[in-house]
């Protein structure tokens, strides 16, 4: 049941429209990373899921760039929800803005979805 709910939450967050992202911004707030830095190390469990609002996040495999997260996209949500080690190194560029979905926020969102599903 818990896994099902977390998959519902994951799907729900992955399909947020701009209006819903704005609502999330108002409720959860966003943060700006002033300094370019490692957001998630390879093999680490993400401390939170991230929704990129502005800027860029690079995904690295060693020194090789394997992908990028664009504004509106998610990072690390599945891994944060299920405590799975992240496959790559995620580096956030300076002055990037993100919504941080920490464990407590994810649990609250899961609870809201559970209540909706139970109705």
């Amino acid at each position: 049941m818990i896994y099902h709910l977390s998959m519902v939450l994951k799907t729900r967050i992955e399909n947020l429209n701009p209006k819903e992202i704005k609502k999330l911004l108002l409720n959860v707030g966003s943060r700006i990373y002033q300094t370019r830095s490692e957001l998630i190390y390879k093999g680490h469990i993400p401390l939170a899921g991230f929704i990129l609002i502005k800027g860029a996040i690079d995904l690295m495999q060693g020194k090789k760039l394997v992908g990028s997260i664009a504004p509106g996209q998610l990072l690390g949500l599945n891994e944060a929800l299920h405590h799975i080690p992240f496959k790559y190194q995620a580096i956030i560029e300076s002055n990037s803005e993100v919504i941080i979905l920490d464990q407590s926020t994810l649990k609250e969102l899961s609870q809201e979805i559970a209540e909706i599903v139970a109705k």
Partner: peptide
């Protein structure tokens, strides 16, 4: 964590 970045825990 890195100087200048936001804390969340």
């Amino acid at each position: 964590f890195v100087q200048g970045n936001p804390p969340f825990g």
